[in-house]
């Protein structure tokens, strides 16, 4: 059980050490933040075995950002109630944040063009090939061999919240009930941490979440509704390669 992280690196001559550092960083973050490790800082915080003031700088930073996200989203994103049994679970921000932080190891090593996909959440740096943006497909919710849309991204991040087959339904922390109205919601923006958190919050908000995402400069969103409509924010057009309602076949 875990998140699959893949890295596609288009630069030549990047040392393997830099790649190791990317995944090493992700492991370190996991050790601190995993809610599935009873000894992680987050687990200890969640059960009251660790005072927030005694937590590491990284954990305190993440908790501060999560609090900011909670207020900004009116409680639709709430790390304090996201976990099992309503416990602390900042994963909705941590995963994307960790990938961004890890990616800096590649930047430091001189990499310009690469794509990291962490369980369907994507950081796309530079270009896929000279003059061509990275093409990121958005999975169709019920047609397995199709994507519902294709984004072209340069130096951006894409995250999708939804049920898909993993089926981890998203609970509205404001009500404790499963969120309804959308099948998936995708956000594109500059940094995966916020992109991922916005996708989580906006999915819970339903269609209103689209407008909420668009209030954040540089962020756009695409939703697939329960009645199979595609709905998107006005500024998404510059990313949208295809996705006009009819499912678009890959390849």
């Amino acid at each position: 059980m875990g998140t699959v992280v893949s890295l596609e690196l288009r630069d030549q001559g990047i040392p393997a050490d830099a790649v190791d550092a990317v995944f090493g960083h992700l492991h370190e973050v996991d050790a601190r933040f995993s809610t599935y490790r009873p000894d992680s800082e987050v687990s200890r915080l969640g059960r009251g075995a660790l005072e927030p003031s005694a937590a590491s700088a990284e954990v305190r930073h993440v908790l501060a950002v999560c609090e900011q996200l909670r207020r900004d989203s009116g409680g639709a994103f709430d790390a304090g109630r996201a976990g099992r049994d309503g416990r602390l679970d900042p994963s909705g921000y941590v995963k994307g944040w960790a990938v961004e932080e890890a990616a800096w190891r590649l930047d430091d090593a001189g990499a310009h063009d690469y794509l990291i996909n962490a369980g369907g959440d994507v950081v796309a740096r530079g270009e896929a090939s000279p003059g061509h943006r990275w093409r990121v497909g958005i999975r169709h919710p019920d047609q397995p061999d199709k994507v519902a849309a294709v984004f072209a991204v340069r130096d951006g991040a894409v995250a999708t919240s939804g049920t898909y087959e993993r089926g981890d339904h998203i609970v509205d922390p404001r009500t404790g009930q499963p969120a309804r109205g959308l099948r998936s919601l995708t956000v594109v923006g500059p940094r995966l941490g916020f992109v991922d958190a916005y996708a989580t919050a906006a999915f819970v908000m339903g269609l209103a979440g689209l407008a909420w995402v668009a209030t954040h400069p540089g962020h756009e969103a695409l939703a697939i509704t329960d009645d199979d409509r595609l709905v998107w924010t006005e500024g998404l057009a510059r990313y949208l390669v295809s996705g006009t309602g009819a499912a678009t076949a890959l390849g």
Binding site: E8, L115, G119, G120, R135, V136, R139, F151, G251
Partner: peptide
């Protein structure tokens, strides 16, 4: 044509 897919799985 497609470099990656958002919303992928385990």
């Amino acid at each position: 044509q497609i470099d990656s897919v958002s919303g992928a799985t385990y």
